[in-house]
Design a binder for these strands. Structure first.
Length: 549
RNA sequence: GGCGGCGUAGCUCAGUCGGUAAGAGCGCUCGACUCAUAAUCGAGAGGUCGGCAGUUCAAGUCUGCCCGCCGCUACCA
């Protein structure tokens, strides 16, 4: 057995400003879960963390629109996310939020350390100020008429009508979203992260990464080559992590802004997990041991934050591991449109989880993970994949073997006679399948891994068609029983290969076969004579209208 | 506008360093089987690899231009 590896599975922090949809599930949460489940079975020490991102202006804007506190918005969606992870089986070691005291402390520590290292400094700039509310306004708090399309409710950062990036000073007839007052420019002081100081080191690091997805590496290198600009990390807000002493002297009503603290969540969540585990230093095995590995599962819109800015923060802090890989996914689109909860494209994870068995949902998404390209998905395609691949190939294989065995051998594993070459070959192929699925998952080629497992199931179906045990049993009971014994061994192996993808039915199948939950990456042998549970389908075939509301 | 990614069979996608005759799954057609959730297995049809031009003995792969989609463009994260 190889030495266990310490593997940090860091998953994008969902923004608690609205429901998350299948694009998020396929972009980050499901691939991370598959990857983490595999490594746990392979005996590695996995720490998989994430949490709800509770800061940022979309949350405060929404709260003001609804007339509630930001915390109420956050609590609502945090609870929804927890429910979704439970239903879909996303098995976190810790799912927390950026609203914890621990997160604030860790963020402040990172801030202070970077400031001590000379990587953060205060600068003054002119910002829009609301004279009635007596506060500075983030871009999103300013609205007005878009200079491009004349849409009259364009936000200061972007026009929702024509989609263009805006600068709030370009807005025609700008007004404060708080009071309607006309904003004026006033000087204000903020802290800047001096990204420019990391430019050369970062570029050298990015250029030497091995095995990264091409689009991720190129995007990060291209962005960095364009010149890293120092970037403000505080805002005139009262919702966010407080600026730590002695740096809290640049004026009232300022907080550390969300993009700086959100990525720190990976570290703070690891620290929180360690505290909970009873060993407050336990997180160091994933962050300070140079042999530890870290994989960041995110969508492609987040590449710059995870492959450029977060590594800079880590370099500046010192002594912490940089990402081993950032296997960012592209997008799942729905009939060509990017999924977007705010635009009503693509329904929430919970909506699907209420209508599909969790493993059916997991299969439908895992089979089309957008690892290289944007991938289009529709409800009809999901149903077709579930029925025609998952149910027909894997579900039916299990069902047909268990059915014949139950009828002919009184629901027990048959005692095998001498094995033929074809018997040995099917079992050997199953073991190869396990190896190849493992290799694919380690390369974070999760679609390919699932495909390989399905190929394994097809091989066993072909073996059964060739051996025809239902005929053989009528003339040679021992030989027929040997074929079924062989098929059961193969199913036992394939079950393990499918476990990272289909954990619920893996457990169910284990109960039927009289096996413990899968705990290692290898094929458990089913001894002749072992009792089998009742025959029941692993999956239910879906009606064509199963997702029609 | 600038930077990056992508465009391959009806659908969803693989194609490494340029190299037999372009691949998979699903769908479709035909055949076999009838243990199994009308499931399974086998065979087959189906592609001017977005377009044009170029480099090369050889281009899906390299170069240029064009068309289309997506992301980033530093106050969404």
């Amino acid at each position: 057995m190889p030495e266990p590896r310490n593997i940090l599975v860091a998953v994008a922090w969902p923004y608690a400003s609205g429901p998350r949809h299948l694009g998020h599930l396929g972009g980050a949460y499901l691939p991370a879960d598959i990857f983490a489940r595999y490594h746990r079975l392979a005996g590695d020490n996995v720490l998989m963390v994430s949490g709800s991102d509770v800061h940022g202006t979309p949350i405060t804007v929404r709260a003001e629109q609804e007339g509630v506190s930001p915390q109420e918005i956050v609590d609502r969606y945090h609870a929804e996310f927890l429910d979704a992870w439970d239903k879909v089986g996303i098995a976190w070691d810790l799912y927390t939020s950026t609203g914890t005291e621990n997160h604030h402390e860790v963020t402040q520590d990172v801030f202070s350390r970077l400031a001590e290292g000379g990587y953060i400094e205060a600068r003054s700039s002119d910002q829009l100020y609301d004279p009635e509310a007596e506060r500075f306004l983030p871009d999103r708090y300013v609205e007005g008429t878009c200079p491009h399309c004349e849409y009259d409710a364009a936000r200061g950062d972007q026009c929702d009508n024509c989609g263009r990036q805006l600068d709030p000073v370009d807005l025609i007839d700008p007004r404060s979203r708080l009071t309607g007052a006309t904003p004026e420019m006033r000087p204000t002081e903020h802290y800047f992260l001096l990204l420019s100081k990391f430019q050369d080191r970062l570029l050298e690091w990015l250029r030497t990464r091995q095995g990264w997805r091409k689009h991720v590496q190129n995007m990060a290198i291209g962005f960095t080559e364009g010149g890293l600009q120092d970037r403000a990390i505080t805002r005139d807000l009262d919702w966010g992590v407080a600026i730590p002493s002695p740096y809290d002297t640049i004026g009232d009503g300022k907080r550390i802004y969300v993009w700086f603290d959100a990525v720190i969540g990976y570290l703070s969540a690891s620290v929180e997990w360690a505290k909970n585990s009873g060993d407050p230093d336990a997180w160091k095995a994933w962050w300070q041991d140079p042999d530890a590995e870290s994989y960041y599962f995110i969508g492609k819109d987040n590449v710059v934050f995870h492959a450029v800015i977060w590594p800079c923060q880590l370099m500046g802090y010192g002594g912490l591991n940089l990402p081993t890989d950032v296997p960012a996914n592209q997008y799942i689109t729905f009939k060509g449109d990017k999924a977007s909860a705010s635009r009503g494209v693509g329904r929430s994870i919970g909506w699907y989880a209420d209508r599909l068995e969790p493993d059916e949902l997991r299969y439908a998404i895992a089979a089309i993970l957008p690892e290289q390209n944007d991938t289009d998905l529709s409800d009809d395609q999901m149903i077709a994949r579930i029925n025609e691949e998952l149910v027909a190939t894997w579900g039916n294989l299990v069902n047909r073997v268990l059915s014949i065995t139950a009828k002919n051998f009184d629901s027990a594993v048959p005692e095998p006679g001498p094995l033929s070459d074809s018997d040995r070959q099917v079992i050997a192929e199953t073991d190869e399948t396990l190896d190849e699925v493992a290799a694919a998952i380690q390369r974070v080629e999760l679609r390919a891994g699932l495909r390989r497992a399905m190929d394994g199931a097809q091989s066993v179906n072909a073996y059964l068609n060739a051996e025809e045990p239902w005929k053989v049993l009528k003339v040679d009971r021992e030989r027929g029983g040997t074929v079924l014994w062989t098929a059961l061994q193969a199913i036992s192996g394939l079950r393990v290969a499918f476990t990272p993808y289909l954990p619920f039915t893996s457990d169910h199948l284990g109960e039927i076969l009289g096996l413990e939950p899968v705990s290692s990456w290898g094929r458990p042998e089913l001894p002749g004579g072992a009792p089998l549970g009742g025959v029941q389908p692993l999956f239910t075939k879906l009606e064509p209208d199963a997702l029609d509301e």
